[in-house]
Design a protein around this nucleic acid. Structure first.
Lengths: 176, 176
DNA sequence: CGCTATTTTTAACGGTGTTCAATAGATCTG
DNA sequence: CAGATCTATTGAACACCGTTAAAAATAGCG
């Protein structure tokens, strides 16, 4: 996945590379969707580890480090990261519980940092603000990787999105 | 595309439905990528028309209407909208000029509204702020449609993202 | 009409996800 | 050990896909 990207990824190629036949892949994972979910879950694990490692030796401005680590991983593993969002289950199928847990675990890190960065009287906003800032950072990262920012002339997406985060943490008008 | 979505879309099916053979599709569009680009360009045109129509009868708070129209189109045509971002050209291929123009035209609408909403002494920030807020709104819209917000418990993404936009327009710490 | 130029078709190629009967291997039983 | 049961693995078959190029059909023109 990290080598060819989502569009050129194939279950048959996986089977070939690990020395098994295509049938075995299907016995183990059940379907193409579930194979990709397993791979994406691994990506989420690596992403979380990356963010936690960066936060571990962050001495000041942990929020900045958090945002940087988010971007860094996506740029470093852009095929794997993009696959997280390129893959879509059928509209009537929900992601398995284990996969949802991976997402909750990763977003939980952001929540803890944001809660810690908020003044005590605004801690109640932490959950809503976290969801919003995750989306904000995601949008900037996505536009960085898919070329939209290049097209529009944005050269410092990291600084830009950090300004958005600081605004929201500093003084928020949200009602969440 | 709007019926089956990006993943299940096929050029052969298009040929069948319009009563031509697959070869004709390739004579006209050149490749699968270019066919999708043509379809996505149409989607961008419809999106722009939708936003302009909403802005045309906006009497107050045009920024709110702008954000609402963005969301509304994505939700109303979520398969077509998602295809805009599911499709990725090979890393070494740039989008054709006509397609880039569509994007610049759509984002230009946002730029004009944002510039008008800014106090005169901050007009210079309009371009950078527009890029950032487009990414911000995109992120919220994307998380709404791909289920991330549902998973995280976000129930009012439109209000939430509008709070982010108001923050940035109201008092911005950005250096763009 | 015949001749050219354009449009369209068709068949083939190599690839994909998916299924499933058949095989191979491992494990347990008497 | 021999045999039976259970599990893991295979690979052929199916229906689809994007892509190509030669052949066929159509249109335009003198």
């Amino acid at each position: 996945m990290s080598q060819v990207g989502f569009a050129r990824f194939s279950a048959r190629e996986v089977a070939k590379r690990i020395g098994y036949s295509i049938g075995t892949i299907y016995n183990v994972f059940g379907s193409y969707d579930m194979l990709i979910l397993a791979i994406n879950a691994q990506t989420l694990t690596q992403w979380q580890a990356h963010v936690q490692a960066r936060l571990a030796d962050a001495r000041t401005d942990r929020l900045r480090v958090l945002v940087e680590a988010y971007f860094e991983f996506a740029v470093l593993h852009h095929h794997a990261w993009t696959a997280l969002y390129d893959h879509r289950l059928p509209d009537d199928v929900a992601a398995p519980e284990y996969y949802q847990d991976h997402i909750r675990s990763l977003t939980g890190i952001a929540r803890d940092e944001i809660a810690a960065a908020l003044p005590p009287e605004r801690r109640a906003e932490a959950d809503g603000l976290t969801r919003s800032l995750l989306a904000t950072v995601h949008g900037h990262c996505f536009f960085t990787l898919n070329g939209t920012f290049k097209l529009l002339g944005e050269t410092r997406p990291l600084d830009t999105v950090y300004a958005r985060v600081r605004e929201a943490i500093g003084t928020s008008f949200t009602s969440n």
